[in-house]
């Protein structure tokens, strides 16, 4: 088993000290920092997502796996600074919607997206429209991910999307919504781009948007040629 394969295994099993040790070992063996993502971290977190879906993993397993993945990425991040060949899959601004203080679901989504190679800007809880608009503009976000646990706060998602429209930022971002009371039809009714029923679904959705955008760009290039 290669060191990267071993790293993948210890991330899935939530062993943060081993993840740190194996990352250092692989670097010493000459593995390039950029190769850790496709070679270990992303497939590990994909497997965690799959097990979560299959009800083999629950929140504690996901949390410790994400912690192990972070033990690895924290070593890699400084080495990757300035390396333009390794770019995040996209920037996600996330938070719980205004009035809602329940953030564990949002945290799991953020961890899974980070594990899938996205850059996360976590605005925390009780995120109002102004704060959201500022962050999307400042960070050049590609995605907005909003969660709500209560039907009383879920309604504020509509206001957040309206604020993005008013600020002229709606076309720039794909808006994903989720949380216990949120449904596909609710997402559609407020003009969100997608609904994630759980954290793996949010990752799938973000990847689908990226694939669609890539297809759109190549079609546009063909059109121009």
């Amino acid at each position: 088993m290669s060191t990267l394969d071993e790293l993948k295994e210890v991330i899935i099993n939530g062993n943060a000290p081993a993840a740190k040790r194996l990352t250092e070992a692989a670097l010493n063996q000459g593995t390039r920092p950029g190769d850790f993502f496709a070679g270990a971290i992303i497939p590990a977190m994909d497997e965690v997502g799959r097990r979560m879906r299959e009800c083999e993993f629950f929140i504690p397993e996901v949390l410790i796996a994400a912690r192990a993945a972070r033990a690895s990425t924290e070593i890699l991040k400084p080495l990757l600074a300035g390396d333009s060949s390794v770019r995040p899959a996209g920037t996600v601004v996330c938070g719980t919607i205004k009035g809602d203080l329940h953030d564990i679901g949002k945290n799991i989504v953020a961890m899974m997206l980070e594990g899938a190679g996205f850059r996360i800007v976590d605005l925390g809880v009780d995120v109002g429209p102004e704060k959201l608009v500022d962050a999307v503009r400042r960070e050049g976000a590609d995605f907005v991910a909003l969660s709500a646990l209560l039907t009383t706060t879920m309604v504020n998602m509509k206001g957040a999307i309206e604020a993005l429209i008013a600020a002229g930022l709606r076309q720039q971002v794909k808006v994903m919504v989720g949380g216990a009371p949120v449904t596909e039809s609710w997402a559609q009714s407020i003009g969100a781009d997608g609904y994630g029923k759980d954290a793996p679904a949010a990752v799938e959705l973000a990847r689908r948007f990226i694939a669609e955008a890539a297809r759109g760009m190549s079609a546009a290039r063909r059109g121009a040629a």
Partner: peptide, 22 residues
């Protein structure tokens, strides 16, 4: 018992955040 002491400490902190905003 399930995840070892190191992970248990981390989980207790993370899961405790469920009500930490109240």
């Amino acid at each position: 018992a399930r995840y070892g002491e190191d992970n248990a400490r981390y989980l207790q902190e993370e899961l405790g955040r469920l009500t930490s905003h109240y």
